[in-house]
Amino acid sequence: MSLFRRLVVLAGAAEAARRYARSNPDKAGKALDSAVQFVDKQTGGKYTNQIAGVARKAKDAAGIPQPGYGYGAPGTTPPAPGPRQPGPGDGQQPGGPGQPPAFPPPNPGNQ
């Protein structure tokens, strides 16, 4: 079988799997989770993070709901964290731009 023909067959199988996953998200999610557990067990846990990342991307591409990552529609992987807001203990004074400080400034006449 030629390379092009193999790619066509593979693309057809991938599309059929995607349609099945979208119409049966619970079953597809369970099947993918069991495959992830099997591969992780076979590799002895050496590639757990990489396997989990691939599973997340596969679920996202197929539209399978993921706990903690939105409903599972394509593009629902969590966004990259934005700039962190200063909090207590960061060396920042209370109050921010345009806000009065939480404590009164010292009186210059009492020094």
Rank of each mutant, 00 (worst) to 15 (best):
P65A: 08
P108Q: 00
T48M: 05
A52I: 13
K59V: 01
G12W: 01
P97S: 14
N110E: 15
P105W: 03
Q42G: 01
K46P: 01
G82P: 07
D40W: 00
Y47N: 13
K30S: 05
R22F: 07
K59A: 08
G63L: 05
P104Y: 09
G96K: 12
V9Q: 06
V54S: 11
L10S: 06
R18D: 02
P74T: 14
G68A: 08
D33E: 13
R22Q: 15
K46W: 02
N107S: 05
A17L: 07
G82W: 12
S23Y: 03
A14V: 06
G91N: 03
V9T: 04
F103A: 11
R84A: 15
A13R: 11
R22L: 07
A80E: 13
A21E: 03
T76S: 15
Q99M: 14
E15W: 06
A16S: 09
A61C: 10
L32S: 01
G98E: 09
A21C: 03
A13W: 05
P97M: 11
P78R: 15
Q85Y: 10
Q93T: 08
V54G: 06
T48K: 15
G12H: 03
A55M: 09
Y71F: 12
P79D: 10
Q93C: 07
Q92V: 11
L32V: 04
P83I: 11
R6K: 10
Q50P: 05
Q66H: 06
L3Y: 07
K41H: 12
P108Y: 03
P74F: 07
V54H: 09
Q99R: 15
A17D: 02
Q111R: 14
G29S: 04
R19S: 05
A55V: 12
A13P: 01
V39Y: 09
N24H: 15
S23G: 04
Y69R: 14
Y20K: 04
A11M: 04
G44Y: 07
F38M: 10
A11S: 09
T76L: 02
R22K: 12
G91Q: 06
R19V: 09
G109F: 14
R5I: 04
G98K: 12
R6P: 00
Q93F: 07
P86I: 08
I64V: 11
P74Y: 14
P79T: 08
S34Y: 03
A52F: 08
K59D: 01
L3A: 10
Q37T: 12
G72T: 09
P105L: 09
Y20N: 04
P83F: 14
D26C: 01
V36W: 06
V54T: 12
Y71V: 11
G98F: 08
K57F: 11
A55F: 07
G70I: 12
G75S: 12
Q42D: 11
K57M: 13
G44L: 08
P101R: 09
S34N: 12
R22T: 04
A35I: 04
A62V: 01
P67W: 00
G68S: 05
P65T: 06
K57E: 12
R22S: 08
A35K: 06
P104H: 12
G96D: 08
F4W: 10
L7C: 04
R5V: 04
G44V: 07
P97K: 14
A11Q: 07
L7P: 01
A58T: 15
L10V: 02
R22V: 00
Q92E: 07
S23Q: 08
A16D: 09
D26Y: 00
